[in-house]
Design a protein around this nucleic acid. Sequence first.
DNA 1: TGCTGTCGATACCGCACAGGTATCACAGGC
DNA 2: GCCTGTGATACCTGTGCGGTATCGACAGCA
Lengths: 319, 319
Amino acid sequence: MDELEVRELRYFSAVAEELHFGRAAERLGIAQPPLSRAIRRIESRLGVQLFERDRRGVALTEAGRVLQREAGPALDAMTAAVRRARRAGASERSLVLATKAGASHQLLQRLLEECAAQSDLPPLEVLLCEVGEQAGLLRTGAADVALMHRPVDDLDGFDAEELLTENQVAIVPAAHPLARSVELTLAEVTDVPDLPMARWPRLDGTYPEGPGPEVHTQTDIAQRVALGTCLLLIPASSRAWQWPEHVAVPVVDAPPLTTVLAWPATSTSPQVARIARTAARLAASTEQGPIGMSRETPEPKTPGLQLSPWTPGPKRARS
Amino acid sequence: MDELEVRELRYFSAVAEELHFGRAAERLGIAQPPLSRAIRRIESRLGVQLFERDRRGVALTEAGRVLQREAGPALDAMTAAVRRARRAGASERSLVLATKAGASHQLLQRLLEECAAQSDLPPLEVLLCEVGEQAGLLRTGAADVALMHRPVDDLDGFDAEELLTENQVAIVPAAHPLARSVELTLAEVTDVPDLPMARWPRLDGTYPEGPGPEVHTQTDIAQRVALGTCLLLIPASSRAWQWPEHVAVPVVDAPPLTTVLAWPATSTSPQVARIARTAARLAASTEQGPIGMSRETPEPKTPGLQLSPWTPGPKRARS
DNA sequence: TGCTGTCGATACCGCACAGGTATCACAGGC
DNA sequence: GCCTGTGATACCTGTGCGGTATCGACAGCA
């Protein structure tokens, strides 16, 4: 009389996002009539109206908005439960680590080597993902631990071990005048009229206001920088932006970023605890070691490498 | 191919707790055969063994233990989603406050009066519960806010506003020699041979070791103290233990307890925020006002009220 | 060793409900 | 007016849930 099944909540969630029964049904892989019926049944079972079906479209009611907000975490928890149980039952007891492709390359490599070498550490599977995806992967149980960055990443509900702190560099098109600088300040890289900063989606999927292009994949932004349409700030150790058309210039006063190893606060796995300790140890030794992270900062390419004078690229290169 | 429905997870959870298909089925209100089938179907769908059906009983596998640990939060999130959506759709937009019966009586009363008086505050529904139940009520959406106590209550995943800090009193049988003291120390109330401290269930439902009786309701413990079988420590403002057979004695060096108003960290309701501000304001004014919480501390009843000399009660008065 | 009780698995049946197709009802636009 | 787009309704079919009856395996016991 009063419970919602996972399937039903998924249906609701799809309609709430699309605000269109036909498209939602298509996304769900079912026909539209069963979806309409399902939603009506949900509404009658809960005893509340979830959607306002006006002739000119579908809108969420207040109750619908509340349910939409609650649906995400609830569905995440359900999928996480089965994913984790599955993985616990698998014979191979490896640990899945999610990380932004290209980030913290050196540390990741040492961590992988360490896990392969030490028999008491679980084998590590690396799940490379795009910016901001780690949190969702942890929440749905697709990953056990993740390399994330304070303060930019969403660390809500996670425990984290701080690994290392590093400064940021600006990645600018090699042909742009800014690329000639040995170092830059924040003031110098913001509000450059012909080189706006790229805008990443926020945690809720919306984009901040600004002149720069909306991007959500790393190759996307790398391409744009190479085309000369924008610049961006990244941690110095990141390896994703090393195209010949890119130049990395330290930004001396940009807020430093701390790389952390994060895991769900509910996790009780000793494996996770062991990896966290190991990662912290490696980070500490790496930082002062001969191949220190600080030395990994890409040297700004010499201005002499520039092949052609700066010309602004197309304002918008959307596919 | 790979999702679990809420009903199925409930079935699993019941079997995991009972470790007995027959009893679990009874608890679920279904017959045993469908339950057996459901569990087998779950196992085959997930591709993992969840239970070890030995001839001498049912045991959880490693995967089963993981799923059991994940099941609680996931199911809580699902029920919370529908509860909150339902309440959001109800015409009467009241707020449900959960609190231990008897605790923070004065503050609660002023909060209720304030909500009734101020038209911009929502009407407050009070949900009285037993010790440690508030967290579950918040997690499943049965309550919007709760009065809880730092550091004894489980505040994990909640945001909280500190309201007031108070000292603890020992509630002892009026006939016991300890009742004659004007004040006591922790050392004096622990390890009293004939008056062990009552043991409350921990967050996971198990009981700490010790000589005292296991209790989980307030009337339970009140009765035991009146019978002279144990004592306990409570915050001074609590009103649940005022029987004629009880004497409250301040324990000068017991760690002070802070009453907080807690709510799910995910809550975005402006109502909740408003209540939190109001409660904090009331608590601050009450603390220094004429009817201050500090003055609410029950005066220790005078030793002269004792009617009969101390005789130890029965060691264990279990029903 | 056979009897019995316990407990989970299996067999079989009826019904509820999910999902599909076809169609309707209604608003807007040309 | 007709056409298009959108959600609701009608009707059909198959899956699968839950129920009863029964089996099979093992423990305890005389």
